[in-house]
Design a binder for these strands. Structure first.
Ligand SMILES: [Mn+2]
Ligand SMILES: [Mn+2]
Ligand SMILES: [Zn+2]
Ligand SMILES: [Zn+2]
Lengths: 148, 148
DNA sequence: ATTATAGTTGAAAATGATTATCATTATCTA
DNA sequence: TAGATAATGATAATCATTTTCAACTATAAT
């Protein structure tokens, strides 16, 4: 529901076509706040769209990631998980990750302080190591309620 | 060179035997500050110890990780990298990761401020999500000098 | 509306890192 | 030194992700 046309435009700009699999995957992602694996998506879509290929899901997720529409998170259990970025700019957040079951929880605490520290650090590191820094991650690892 | 006997003892406590492959792998890790993949290690060891198996390297690295002797870092390129933990306690650091070639650089800037923020956040998250938090990661992603 | 041109799809095979098996060997303890 | 058992390494198996490629389709130009 949130912005099918915006997505469509974003695709056109990049010479990408607006297709059924892409629409369906985006629709699914926009319906949840969970961080889904390619297989999760494949499973959820199966009833509504039995023909869809896992390959296409991987390709679409990679595309969405390239277009900056989804977050891609490695939970350390060997598979990547994806979540749609929110439209509002107040969505900067990081993750709490269960190392046993792979569950990912968003958190948005102390974002202001975090950003200050991140900015300082980023500047220092850019100079010191002549890296081109594009992003940062902060994650807390542990066991979720069920797994501990 | 740094503490072969300490390692040996750490092994014994855990009913683990002190073997040639384990000694050789630890020796290699202690000779560098780089973050190595299992294959890197296999390659480096080959001349000195042609018989060693890649399987054993994986097993040893996993063991060292379980014993808390190495850091295990996922560079996002699909393979894990390992680096020996330093003996001194001033070694708390985080990583700058090149998303193109997987290179990992340690940084230790603003550790004090970082720890304050981390502590606050950890307490808040523990309560709010009833997670048992065991560790945290901070990483900056981008392109290294060679890759950008 | 028809056509031409890329972009897209999905089945199948390939890749590549990591793990599981299992017979053989090495370490440690008594 | 001998027995118990942990460790090794060759091999096969897993498993997520990619690559291939022929068939299909969205889109723009006629
Ligand atoms: Mn998230
Ligand atoms: Mn490090
Ligand atoms: Zn869990
Ligand atoms: Zn690089």
């Amino acid at each position: 529901m949130p912005g099918r046309h915006q997505w469509q435009n974003r695709f056109r700009e990049n010479v990408c076509r607006w297709t059924v699999p892409r629409e369906v995957i985006l629709a699914l992602l926009s319906r949840t706040t969970e961080h889904l694996t390619a297989k999760d998506i494949y499973g959820s879509l199966y009833s509504m769209y039995p023909g869809i290929g896992l390959t296409t899901i991987y390709r679409t997720l990679e595309l969405l990631h390239r277009l900056g529409l989804v977050h891609k998170v490695a939970a350390g259990d060997g598979q990547s998980r994806y979540a749609l970025k929110r439209e509002d700019k107040e969505d900067h957040h990081h993750h709490l990750i269960c190392t046993r079951c792979g569950k990912i929880v968003d958190y948005r605490d102390f974002v202001q302080e975090e950003l200050e520290l991140v900015k300082k650090t980023e500047e220092a590191l850019t100079k010191k190591h002549s890296f081109l820094i594009q992003d940062h991650n902060i994650e807390f690892l542990g066991l979720c309620e069920k797994c501990r």
